[in-house]
Every structure is written in C-alpha cells, then in structure tokens.
Write a protein that binds this DNA or RNA. Structure first.
Lengths: 220, 220, 220, 220
DNA sequence: GATGAATGAGAATTCATTCAT
DNA sequence: TATGAATGAATTCTCATTCAT
C-alpha cells in the first residue's frame, strides 16, 4: 500500500479518537456495506442507521469512498502483516513441528480472526470482486506480502521431507486456491456462524492427503 | 428457479428472435457488467456502447434488472443442468474409468466452457457475491441441482475403491471448495486468458494426492 | 481558445438544434447569471425559471459549468473576431477617413452590439472578474486577438499624421482603458438602457483631444 | 451608508480591540475573498487558513456576510471621505496650482493607497460587480460623496481657464470612466505589482490633452 | 421498432450556522 | 473566549424510466 492517501486514511482511522457518533457511523457502515455492498448502500441509509445527520458523515470522512477505506484498511493492514509474522513464528514453534500442525494452527487462527471480523471480511471480498480500483490496489499488495513468506515456509517443510516434491510455487498456488475457496465459501456465500472443528479437520485431511484412496496406489 | 418471472425472462431470452439492435445491447451489457459490475454500469452507458437509444433498451427489456437476468439466466440455466448430465455421462463413459480421468475431463470441459463465456461467468459471480437477492435465487437452485448428482458420482467412485473412505458429503464439500476457488481465482481475480494444461494437471494432482510427501508415511 | 473542450462546447452551442425547453433553459440561465452571478444562481432556480426539471438541464449541458460556457462562448467568439475584421474594414472604408470617424463608428457599432447582448456581456464581465479560471482562459485569448490588429490600425492613423506621436502600444493602452471603463460603467454598473448619441460624442471628444496631434489642427 | 447595521459593523470593526485570532481571521478572509471571491470561499477555508475553529469565526462575526462587511467597510468608509478631503486640500495647495499637478498628485496618492490595500480593493470591486445588494448599498454612497466635491474642484479649475469649456458633469463622467478603467485594469485584471511612474505620466498626458483647453498652450 | 427528450426521485457533497463543553 | 462536533438545508449531479413522435 504505497499510496499516500491510503496511509493517511489508515493512520487516521487507527489513531484518531472517535466520538460516539463516529463509532456508530463506522458500525452502521460496516453492517450495511457487508449486507448490501458499497454501491448499493447510500450515505442517507448509513446516516439513518447510525442516528446521525448526513452532514456528520461527510464532516468526518470527506467522501463515501474514504469511509469505505476507513473501514477496510485497518482490517487488511492488520490481516496480512500479522499473517506473515505468524507464519514464521508457527513454523519455528515447537508445537508445530509438522506441516499438518502448522496448517491446523494457521487455519484455526485465521478462522478465529475472520469470525471476529466477519462483516469486514465480507466487505473486503465483495469490493475486491466488484470494484476494479480496489482490486488493483489491494491484490498487488497482498501478492507482494504473503506469497514470499509463505513460500519460504513451504520450502522449509519440503526440505524436512514432509511435503510432496514439487516447486514451492505450485504447492502454494493450490494451497491458496483451496484456502481462499474455504474462507470465501464459509464466510461469504454461506453465512456460517461457526466453522466447526470437524470441518477444519476435514479440510486439513483434504489438503494433506487428497481424495485418493491410500490403499489404491495404482497411479495411472 | 421456481420463480415465474425468471422462467418468463428465460424463455423469452432464449426463444425470441433478436433484432440486430438487441444483439448489440446484450453484447454491450455483458461487456460492461463484467467489467464494472451491474451497479456501476448505467443504462446510458449501455445505450452508448451499443449504439442504441436508451428508449430502445427499455422497449425490449423493461427494466435494467430484467436486462441483467436476460444476460445471466441462459448461462446459468445451461451451466448447471448441463453439468449434471455430463457428470453422469462421464462417470459411465469408457474414457473415464478412473476418478482422476473423470476429474480431468470435468475440469477441462468446464475450463473450456467458462473460457468461452468468461464475461458472463464474471457477471454471475460478481452479482452472486454482491446482490443478496440474486444469491438467494441462484444459490439454492445450484445447490438443489448439482450436489445430489455429484454425490452419486462420488459414491460410485468410492465404491469402486478409488476414493478415500469418507462420506460423499465431506468429499464433495472440499472438492467444490477447491474447484470454486480454482475457477474464481483464475477467471475473475486474475484475468487469466488461458489456463494451461500444466496448471490443470497440478490441480488434479493436488486434489488426488494432497500435499503430503508420499515417502513420509508417518501419520501423526 | 485553443482548449478543445471550449471548441466542443462552442460548436455544439452554435450548431446543435435546440428544443424549446433548451431555448428556455439558456434564456433563463442568461437572465439569472446576469442578474445574480453564476455562483449565486442554483440549477434549481434555472430549472424553475425555465419550467423544466433539473434533470433536463444536466441531460443537455452535463454540468453547470458547461451551461455557463454554452452561454458565454458564442458571444465572445463572435465578439472578438468580428471586432478584428470590422476594425480593418473601418480603417479602409471611405466613410472613416479620419481617426475620429473610425472611433465613432467603432463605438457606435459596439454599443449597439452590447446593447443587444447586454445580459451576456454582464455575465462575461462578472465572471472574468470573479472566476479566476475563466479570466485565465478568456483574457489571454482577447489579448492575443484584439491588440495586434488594433495596433496596426493605430499605426496607420498615426502615419497619416492624425495621432499623437507616441508608440502605438501606449496609445492603445490608454484607449482600451477608457473604452473598457466606458462599456463596463454603462452596461454593468449603471444599467443604462440606452447610451445616448450625446454621451458617445462626449466620449469621442474626450478621447480625441487626448490623442489628436496638436500640430494637426484640422478640426472636422 | 445610512444603514444602521452597516454603521454598527463599521464602528465595531474600527473601535473594538481585536484578539490575535480575530486579526488572523480578518487577514485570511481578506486574502481568500480577494483571490477566489466571497461566494467561492467557505468559512471552513477561512478557519483553516487562520488556524482557528469555525466556531470562533461565528462567535466574533455572527455571519459570513458580516465578516465580509467587517473587511470592506473600514476600507470604503476611509477611502471616500478621505478622498473628498484630499481633493479639496490638493486644489488649494500651493504644490498643485495646475490641474495637471492636481491630477498627478491625485493618481499617485490613490495608486499608493490601492497598492497598499490591493486585496481589499479587489474584494470591493469584485463584490460590487457580483453582488447586487452590495452594489446597491455602496454605489449610491460613493455617488453621493465623491462627485459633488469633484465637481466643485473641476469647476474651480475650469474657471481658472485650464479646462475645456464643458459642463463639469461631462468632464467628470469621462474622467471617472478613465480613472475607473485605469484602477480596475491595473489592480484587478492584470495583477500589476507596481504601477510605474511612466505609466502614470502616460495616463496623465492622455487625460490632459483631452481636457486641456486648446487655447491654453502654456505647457508646464 | 426505434428514438431521444423529459422526468423526478434520490445520490453524494457542501456549507453556514448552532451549541454543549 | 474558544473549540469542534453536529446539523439540515441546499446544491450539483446521476439514473432508471416514461412517453410522444
């Protein structure tokens, strides 16, 4: 997020002391954006939902766009760097000596995080899918931050002999595809209020072993 | 799609002879909706892009909403039932005696189909993600059509001893999660102009075998 | 007016066939802008005054700014080139053998023109004074068109021995200062409905006895 | 300026002790009004430019309109009466025995004054041109104060045989037209940072040779 | 069937002004 | 005295939709 405006909005959103009304504006905005999407939510609705005049919204956030960013940026800016740090920590930690343990820990941790921030997660995904500008800002940022570290982790585990003998790139691609599908389907398509332990275990088994019957080794 | 309006629009969209202008309207609408999203595309833009007056659009489609459905419905109404049929056919076909072959055939076939209809695919996904009403209409429809047949297919292959010994439900969930992630990431997030054979093979290997090193059988 | 947008608006304003409502919009805009100034006139007022919905105004003119230009540009684009042509014609004409005759003819002609377009004249002057952007567009344009030709004319008359022996630049500056003051004071400050012959003659005498070569005593 | 509100604002603006913040408010207001015009300057801008809260502005000045008057009135109320006094003094003074000397002295003095108060001059002219209400207040006031005294002065000089044999009214009209054009063009249209001696002399020569009695050939 | 002028409801945004602290 | 949060009316502008031709 090299963009200066982004930085300005972010620091303001995080550091600035918020009045009660501002709190309510952000809360209402989060709820409405998550539910109906940014484009289908009017500032009048937000104002009404938060018991505030429209003027107040613009006094504090300038434009509807900046309001969206004020909601999104703290989330994404926490999501990714945090992930990066945790990835490394988990790899090294004693509790995650195997890749499977690492994966379990990662999924559980992110499920918890997204569960807590379900609505913002929905907004982010919806707008990345819908607003080209946002996609163009956020996607490169995400791609620049996560994959490199993830790849290192994967290489580490592969060297330990735990992973299939494929380039880390390829492993990463499929893993991210599955995890992306997992989070989006659970937290956006089906508004699943809690992802069960069992479901997580099933996912882990799928990632680790695939669908092939282990007894049936006749590779084609 | 129990909805009568849907049916009416659908039959009209499919059966009715289209004038040249109507063709252009639909083409332009598809392109613009795919690019900018339904909410961010005005009828004025569509009119301009298709070299037609705004009046004409409404003469033919009544409302902007119906225009969207005229674009989407033929696609989804073809996509899902067709898939169902093919699924069965493929399972039974001689060329797809193994699950892996079945999977390969399925993915290739759908990649081809979505590649050809990339823009409508993008519209459908975007609006399912964005418009709750559409999600509520299409998702149940899709869930009612695909999973049951898919489950049958999976059970068939499991009985043949090719698949891991888990309930078809669980297998299905993870498989769909991955395939959903695959198509959305390739055709929507990254506007990939052609998905390579290699990429497909990698995906198949991932689904079939997972990430675990086959040499390392130390199950935890 | 090198600006492309200006050209586009100008040609559209001149060539495009106007509906009755458009006529009324322009008429009302002219009257209100002249009376209250552009900044102090709302599009709602214009809509009301012209018996049209606000939407219609924007359908035709896009923005309030473009409406202003649609009103102003035909006037200025006619005013200056026309002036240039006339200036030369008058100098050469037999009826204007002396500078005084030339001056009289010029003033009368422009008085007539501005009298007919009094309101637009007021708008132009007001906005040049008030809107920096417009001043920056229009002033250089005016300065590039009028002075050079004017200077030639002055030099011609000076060579004929009719004018004081000063650089044409200096003569021009003072002449324009006076004429500018004349038109602005009569048509803007005091909303004078008709400038009398007598007043014009007084002005001419004022100017002449300043510019006339004292050696040249041949009073007409 | 018969208006009581005007008087109240004026006396307050002149007599009341100003806090530092008030000083800054007025300074910023002057600068912004001069640059962008009253209508195009928001109180928020003024607040920001002067490092003061918006509340403070309204605490002190009540309305934006009154702030404008607080800026303008001290200027005009000083400008005109002062001019009147000076006019008489100059006529009688020994240094200004001729009309030309009087004119030179007058122009130089006013050029100096306006140079020092360039911004307020710009505000006054802009708003007189733009705001009908202000024009209706100030113009009659100016017309009631200046012309009568000016006329007396002109009559005095005419009786001395220095001026052309025309009614003082007519002389005045053309003189004011030229001087008005002079000040407005130099200090508003072209933001001339200093009007040169030479330019002033040229203007005087222009005026003199129009007004000077041709029988009176005693050039200074 | 096609046009395009016209609409009016609503969208985002601005702004002078008020008021509790 | 000074603040700045809050307001609501007004402003520019958008847009799906209607309708006479």
């Amino acid at each position: 997020m090299s963009n200066k405006i982004f930085d300005a909005i972010l620091t303001q959103a995080i550091t600035k002391v918020k009045t009660e009304k501002q709190q309510k504006i952000v809360e209402s905005a989060i709820q409405l954006f998550a539910e109906k999407g940014y484009s289908n939510t009017s500032t009048a609705e937000i104002a009404k939902a938060s018991g505030v005049s429209e003027g107040t919204i613009f006094k504090h956030y300038g434009t509807k766009d900046k309001l969206l960013l004020s909601v999104i940026l703290p989330f994404v800016s926490e999501l990714f760097p945090y992930m990066a740090q945790e990835l490394i920590k988990k790899t090294m930690s004693e509790n995650t000596t195997t890749f499977e343990q690492f994966l379990r820990s990662l999924i559980k941790d992110r499920v918890e995080f997204v569960t807590e921030n379900r609505e913002i997660f929905q907004i982010v995904v919806k707008e990345i899918v819908y607003k080209d500008e946002l996609k163009k800002e956020l996607l490169p940022y995400a791609l620049a931050n996560i994959p490199p570290i993830f790849k290192k982790v994967l290489e580490e585990f592969r060297e330990r002999g735990e992973l299939v003998d494929l380039p880390a790139d390829k492993i990463l691609k499929n893993l991210v595809t599955f995890l992306g599908g997992f989070f989006v389907s659970r937290f956006l398509l089906i508004d699943d209020f809690n992802v069960s332990e069992e479901e997580i275990e099933d996912a882990i088994q799928f990632v680790m072993n695939g669908l092939r019957n282990p007894q049936n080794n006749a590779l084609e």
